[in-house]
Design a protein around this nucleic acid. Structure first.
Lengths: 347, 347
DNA sequence: CTGTTAGCGCTTTCAG
DNA sequence: CTGAAAGCGCTAACAG
């Protein structure tokens, strides 16, 4: 049973009265084939839309020219942009990508990885779920020789190439920006995960406070559950109520993730707080709709496309055996602050 | 060269002192294998994490258990939701999906399709680019036996299963909603494409006007270029300026696509028009951020996830030979209107 | 320079 | 009930 109805090497061989291997070599531009034969083969192949069978080639070569990508979700602007970057880098090197979603669940993430591995991918790009604590399965695959690159959400538990945003700097800049605009009591809303993405951002926030001589107040840090949207909303609502009920209540909030940033804005509006008069807001997110919001939302923008692209390039380099460099590298691409009305200066 | 380090049938055969074909049959639960042998094989396979090699299986069976998906872009909330649905349906039937982006370019779209076909996909799910006029390549592949299902953006030029939103009804409802809320001069902003998605929405708009005894004014229809974001923004800005400069200027705008809806809101804000006092707004889009906007944007919501899911199920049914039903089917899933402040009643 | 052959891992007759 | 063998389309060693 032939795939599609496509022409095979055999068809060309028969038509041209040559052997299969001659055709194969001609198409692979082998030096041991004569110029005119080569031309004849190439012409025939082009004319009849020959394209090599991925399966056969993959089987023979022991690789599939496909890479697995594991993300928490497709329906998220930052991730869509990263996937776009991954997609670009991959197709450039003619790799296919197989995308899987963990939905922030450790269990589902393992299932994705297993499926990808079983499916014979040549390597895996992964941005771990918030929930994941145990990375031993991933490590075992790595030990078994599977190239793995981490992107966006990085972890220390696994030693490989990593590509993410400079979260410390992004958080530092955002906090600093609030301080420079006259805000003093700055709350930080983040997520309860062991991923460095959370601690890096928290540390950036703390450092900015310290550098400005503002004491860090632990009661201004709230960590929300991220696995379930409903739970997240609940946690956020509670956090905001808690903040606004404090004696010395915050005059600004710095939010750590896309979801938290936008939902926080909605909730503040819903509860009737004026932004930035009652409380200012700046947060991580890449949505183009920040300008359309009420009020326009100040954001920390991540180079999502570039993160994806760079991570994919790294992985492909690993797959293709360029494991030459002794050590693994962690790359942090710069974020940048986009100031809008939600963090307007009160000075 | 073996894929990964995975165990093969041969490994199991050697270990158990059986033949390869016995193992194969045992794993496929063939009736011609004894119960205890079967058990022994299954146990060993499980213990050693055996999983069949996709490439080999695909080569043998002449199919790849993968489906190609062509969309205009990844970075779009409606599409992300559709992909999510496609993904769910596909993984349930253990098909992999290969996603390609046309970026609204006819040329790039052809390239995507060619790549997918060459890559040996078992079928193609496609939502055509706005720009595409010539569908002959797709038709020729279909004639060659490749199953194709259209989703989201449907066209008449190709005869197959199609799954989309009920765009006529969505547009009708949106326009009717504006009329019911006291708006009389309703403009319609859409795109210049031959895709039925545009004409259906236009017709729904016209029908709602007719049913309410309002005369259709052609000067209130503007069609924007959609291929290039910059061009779109320009066209939109011009259209709005044009509308607002009219003697009998519109008191409401109904926008036909995700991009147009959100950008239109931004532009109106930027130009200083009050929504809905100066001009009301309702438009197609699925963004969760409608509530966060200034003002909260009334939307026509498409069942994007379901469209993707249903389309994928149809395609897989076709692939698996259930082409039994004589005719092809076009399914229109219902949209629903989400009323927010941007189209508040002026009565 | 061109052809023959073996084999990647799997399914599937066909024999035993 | 189990095994041997062919072949899916391709590459690569080895002959000629």
């Amino acid at each position: 049973m032939r795939m599609n109805n496509s022409v095979t090497l055999r068809d060309i061989a028969k038509a041209l009265n040559l052997s299969i291997s001659t055709i194969s070599k001609a198409l692979n531009d082998s030096h041991e084939i004569g110029a005119e034969t080569k031309q004849k083969v190439l012409d025939y192949a082009k004319k009849h839309h020959y394209s090599p069978n991925r399966m056969a080639k993959g089987l023979k070569e022991g690789k599939s020219r496909s890479i697995g990508v594991v993300v928490c979700s497709l329906d998220n602007n930052v991730i869509a942009q990263m996937l776009d970057g991954i997609h670009k880098a991959s197709t450039e090197k003619s790799y296919q990508i197989i995308i899987m979603q963990s939905k922030e669940s450790e269990k589902q993430e393992s299932a994705c990885i297993e499926l990808l591995y079983a499916g014979g991918v040549d390597g895996i790009l992964i941005s771990p779920a918030y929930e994941t604590i145990n990375f031993s399965y991933l490590v075992s695959l790595q030990d078994a020789g599977l190239p793995i690159v981490l992107f966006d959400r990085l972890i220390d538990q696994i030693n490989t190439h990593k590509v993410g945003a400079d979260n410390f700097k992004g958080a530092y800049d955002a906090t600093r920006h609030l301080i420079d605009n006259g805000y003093k009591n700055i709350a930080h809303l983040n997520t309860n995960t062991i991923l460095s993405i959370a601690t890096d951002r928290l540390n950036g926030y703390k450092q900015a406070l310290a550098d400005s001589g503002i004491k860090y107040r632990p009661e201004l840090l709230r960590s929300c559950n991220y696995t379930d949207t409903n739970k997240l909303n609940e946690d956020l609502e509670q956090a905001i109520k808690y903040y606004m009920g404090l004696k010395d209540r915050p005059d600004a909030i710095f939010t750590a993730t896309d979801q938290i940033s936008t939902r926080c804005l909605m909730l503040l509006n819903k509860m009737g707080y004026k932004i930035p008069e009652d409380v200012a807001l700046i947060g991580f997110t890449n949505t183009e709709l920040a300008d359309a919001m009420n009020p326009p939302l100040s954001t920390v923008h991540q180079p999502a496309f570039e993160i994806g692209q760079f991570a994919a390039e790294k992985l492909i380099a690993m797959i293709e055996g360029k494991r030459l460099d002794e050590g693994y590298e962690t790359v942090m691409l710069p974020t940048n602050i986009k100031v809008r009305a939600s963090s307007q200066s009160r000075i």
